[in-house]
């Protein structure tokens, strides 16, 4: 599991609990990244929305306990650690993010200035999967390199 420096983080209001049905995930676009937020029934977990295998959208996977199964090639990723749990995916890992729920709102712990993410050792990720409904945010989300 990769950790970024705590001092550079802040809690961001990200979605309503009702936006995500139990045992399903939804993709949220945060800067240049997509985060998968998964409703486990008793809590929400957040993880990069890119399977370490071929970048599949984990938000679209079937939830199995505390893991999610990538819809492309069935890699099984732990939502708690970001690690692959079956043999095919065992050596790979993606980033998990901390979440918190207050008054029906899901908060995500994000880097204060999101671009810092890259300096903290993250690679730039190609934009994957679905775009947001409106075209305006899609334009905003291009990272300034």
């Amino acid at each position: 599991m990769k950790e970024t420096k705590a001092e550079s983080k802040r809690w961001t209001r990200i979605a309503l609990c009702d936006d995500i049905p139990p045992r399903e995930g939804r993709a949220v676009k945060v800067g240049n990244r997509e985060i998968a937020i998964v409703n486990l029934g008793d809590r929400f977990l957040a993880i990069d929305n890119r399977c370490p295998h071929k970048g599949g959208p984990l938000a679209d996977g079937i939830v199995s306990g505390t893991t999610v199964v990538c819809p492309l090639h069935a890699w099984k990723i732990s939502l708690e650690t970001g690690e692959g749990v079956n043999s095919a995916s065992a050596s790979s890992c993606i980033e998990t993010l901390r979440t918190r729920v207050e008054h029906g709102v899901i908060f995500l712990e994000l880097a204060d200035n999101y671009r810092k993410g890259q300096e903290d050792g993250m690679q730039e990720l190609p934009v994957l999967c679905v775009e947001t409904g409106g075209t305006a945010t899609a334009a905003e989300s291009r990272p300034a390199t």
Partner: peptide, 17 residues
């Protein structure tokens, strides 16, 4: 079946990049 069935969720607060 669900309001967000086909949509990608937009963060509730603006995220500055």
């Amino acid at each position: 079946r669900h309001p967000t069935q086909f949509v990608q969720i937009k963060p509730l607060e603006e995220i500055f990049v």
